[in-house]
């Protein structure tokens, strides 16, 4: 009897934790949709490209951060190596990006 309740307790604690996590993820999702709408609006309104391109790029980066850290749990423990390699990939991406917009044309 006592044993049973204790497992239930752990379970309900676990459930509560999962629920809490889920709540955060829904907030994240709402923010992502919101950012997407801002980006599309900004482009649709025809604001000058000097302003709008940095804006939509920043919004994209923030969104991707949400995906990685919340949806894919990179903020959790045990993700040190995944994070290391994802950031490695992002670093190479940065190098490739800079290269292909600056020194591809002779």
């Amino acid at each position: 009897m006592t044993e049973n309740t204790s497992t239930n307790k752990i379970n309900s604690f676990q459930k509560e934790k999962n629920k809490d996590e889920m709540r955060k993820q829904i907030i994240t999702f709402a923010l992502m949709i919101f950012f997407t709408m801002i980006a599309f609006f900004a482009v649709g309104m025809g604001i000058s490209s000097m302003f709008v391109i940095p804006l939509i790029l920043i919004l994209a980066i923030v969104q991707v951060g949400f995906q990685f850290y919340y949806f894919m749990h990179m903020k959790d423990k045990g993700h040190e190596f995944p994070a290391l390699l994802i950031f490695g990939g992002i670093w190479v991406t940065f190098l490739v990006g800079v290269t292909f917009v600056t020194i591809i044309w002779w």
Partner: peptide, 20 residues
Amino acid sequence: WFFLGGETVLFACFFGTYLA
């Protein structure tokens, strides 16, 4: 996860090509 690190570079190269 590690595979996704590689995929990041794969898409980076496609993006780079597209940007160019």
